[in-house]
Every structure is written in C-alpha cells, then in structure tokens.
Amino acid sequence: MTLNPAHILAAVAVTFSLMSASSSASSGPRPPCGTSGAVPHIDYGPLNGPPKVEVWQNATLSLGATCPSNLNGSAELVIVLASRFVHAGTVQDLATRVGAVSVLKGLKYWSVTDQRWRVLISEAFAVDDTKTLQRRPDFTASEILSGKTLLMAQRDTRSTGLNYYALQTTSHNIDQLSVSIVNLTDIRFLFATLFKQRSLISAHFLTHLGGHEWGYYSLTVVKDAPMKGQEKSFINREAAYLRFVTGQRPEKEPPVAR
C-alpha cells in the first residue's frame, strides 16, 4: 500500500504520540465517568483526526465510585483511545449504533502482523439469554439505554469459535452515553486460552462537547493475558470499534498503530 506525503506525516505523528503516552502517562487513565458537557482534562485530539492513545502496563486502577467497578484492580494492560467526532443526532441515535450488533460483521482493522487491512469479525449477532443463546434482532436504542445486561456473540478471525459478551449501558443522559463490554466466555485459539472469561473489559464514553461535536473515550483493561507485546493489535481493534460507533469508515488511513 502506498501512502502519500500527508499520510506519512500523520503516521509519524501517531507513532510519536504512542511513544510519549507510554512513557509519560504515569498518572493513569481518567475516564469521564458520570460527567456531562466539556471535560477539559481529556485531550481528544483533532476533530475527526487520529485518536490520542495512552498505554499502561502492569497497572493498578482505582477509578472511583462513578466508574464501572470491574475496571478497577490490577491489569496487565490498559489502553485508552480518545477522539472527537461530529454527530448531529441524539444519544438515542448513538445507542442505536451501539445496538446494531450484526453490523459488526465484516468490520476491518489494521493487522500489524499482516501489515494490511483485514476482517476482524466474521460473524456477530445479538443473543436472547445465557440459557438458550438464541439469535435475536439487533438491540433497540431503548434496550441499550435500559441499563440491562444484554448479550451478544462474535466470531473473531483471530480466535476459535464463537465468543460471548455482556453489553451494558452504565450511565446515560442527554449529553453522554457510557457502555461497558465484558467477555463472558474464554477466548481461545485452537487449544490455547488467549483470554479468560471476564478478563477483557472495555468501557466506552461518548460525551457531548458542544454543538455537533462529541468526544469518544475508550478504556480497555486486560486483566489476564498470556500473550505479550500485543499493544498495537489492541489499539487497532479498539480503533475499528471507535470508527464503527462514531460513523467513520473503519479502514480509514492511516492506521492508528503500525
């Protein structure tokens, strides 16, 4: 793939931000839990530009009572992506995007291993309950905003079999939507366990910043993972979901991490 000069400069800028964040973000993540309106301590980066990225390893999180409690405690890896995007609709419209689980099928991400865009999710659907695991239509905005724990299944092209996740809105108001996603089953590749159940947790905060401008802040916490050195892969996977929720093209150049 050939990058034009603008893409090359952007890629260099992103790489520098990754290195800076890894070395200087000692204070830990500060997600906008339970807040609305402008959040001045978060650098979301340029509007519709590449997200700001922060990475911590072997961290212990204590985020306070307004954040989901399962984010707290020791973690092998913590990754934050923060970005600004344009959204002329409402929180309900964003909830509809989050609930459109089946649309995740075919979602692409930049593979650091293959150095190309490839499909991340080959199958995705909403699930009725843990007993029957029956497919059902995508979740409505009302279901997403209800705060109930909803179930979804995904087939990841880098793992074996279907993986089941819990999807839950942890808070919402007219200016913010906060969603948590947790793996309910072990994620495996052949006979190896990549992630134990409930060890892969992500929280996504969409906050109205004023006018048609919104901020997206994702916090991914890996509690237990035998695979080391996968930070760039996690970043690109989270970037793919960020672009899905914010209505951007998933395979947007340049990749966030190479």
Rank of each mutant, 00 (worst) to 15 (best):
G210R: 02
L162M: 13
L206C: 01
D186S: 14
L190C: 14
M152N: 09
S180N: 11
T207L: 05
H204Q: 12
K196I: 10
T169P: 01
A192H: 14
L162T: 09
S178L: 08
W214T: 00
I174G: 08
G210L: 05
R188G: 08
L162F: 06
A166K: 13
L219E: 01
T193Y: 02
S199M: 10
T207F: 01
Q176W: 00
V179G: 02
Q154F: 13
F191G: 07
K196S: 09
W214V: 00
T207V: 10
D156H: 15
G211H: 04
H204M: 12
I201N: 02
L200E: 05
N173T: 06
L206N: 01
L167T: 06
I187W: 07
L206V: 00
M152Q: 15
Q197H: 13
F189K: 11
H204R: 13
F205M: 02
K196G: 14
I201D: 01
F195H: 04
I174M: 14
S159G: 08
R155L: 14
H208D: 13
A166I: 02
T170Q: 11
H204A: 08
S202Y: 06
L151T: 07
W214R: 00
G211I: 02
I201F: 07
L162C: 07
D186K: 09
I181H: 05
F195V: 04
Y165T: 14
S180L: 12
R198D: 03
Q154M: 14
A203F: 03
V179E: 00
N163L: 03
T169W: 00
I181V: 12
H172G: 02
F195L: 10
D186R: 12
K196F: 15
L151D: 10
Q168K: 15
I201W: 02
L177S: 08
M152P: 09
M152H: 13
H172T: 03
H208T: 04
I174E: 15
N173P: 08
S202I: 10
K196Q: 15
A203L: 02
G161L: 01
I201Y: 04
D186N: 15
I174C: 13
K196D: 12
V179Q: 02
Y217Q: 02
L167I: 07
S180G: 11
L167Y: 04
A203W: 01
